[in-house]
């Protein structure tokens, strides 16, 4: 499992390269991503453009990662594909996560 991590000073840009976040890899996904976000202690922008499919176990993994971040650090989800967006919307988790259409550019200081 690979994440492309880029430190943008104000936050961390993480690109998910797995095409599917499903029951086969949800636990590994959660553990790896949690390790990255906990270690860096910065707001996270997660680029989901390459993820074609996510099921409820994948959603559970995303929620676990969200909960592992301290309250004041944001987890922004960028560029959700339609199948992934559907799961967030139907479960009302789109009200919990900060969801944005495109990968955020580096923010000016």
């Amino acid at each position: 499992m690979q994440f492309i991590v880029e430190d943008a000073e104000t936050h961390l840009n993480i690109k998910v390269t797995e095409p599917r976040i499903d029951a086969a890899i949800a636990t590994l996904f959660k553990d790896k991503l949690r390790e990255i976000v906990v270690k860096n202690r910065k707001p996270v922008h997660l680029d989901m453009a390459l993820v074609d499919f996510m099921d409820s176990s994948g959603l559970g993994a995303m929620i676990a990662v969200r909960k592992s971040l301290p309250e004041n650090l944001a987890l922004v989800l960028c560029a959700l594909t339609p199948n992934v967006e559907r799961v967030f919307r139907l479960t009302r988790m789109d009200s919990v996560f900060d969801i944005r259409p495109h990968p955020a550019q580096k923010e000016p200081l």
Binding site: S56, S57, G60, A64, K67, V87, L90, T91, M93, V96
Partner: peptide, 23 residues
């Protein structure tokens, strides 16, 4: 229905059968 979305203690499961029934 959906598991309660408590901001301080978000559920990490219990969505599967909700999605099945919904779709």
């Amino acid at each position: 229905s959906l598991p309660p979305l408590l901001p301080d203690d978000l559920p990490e499961g219990g969505f599967g059968w909700f999605l099945i029934q919904d779709l």
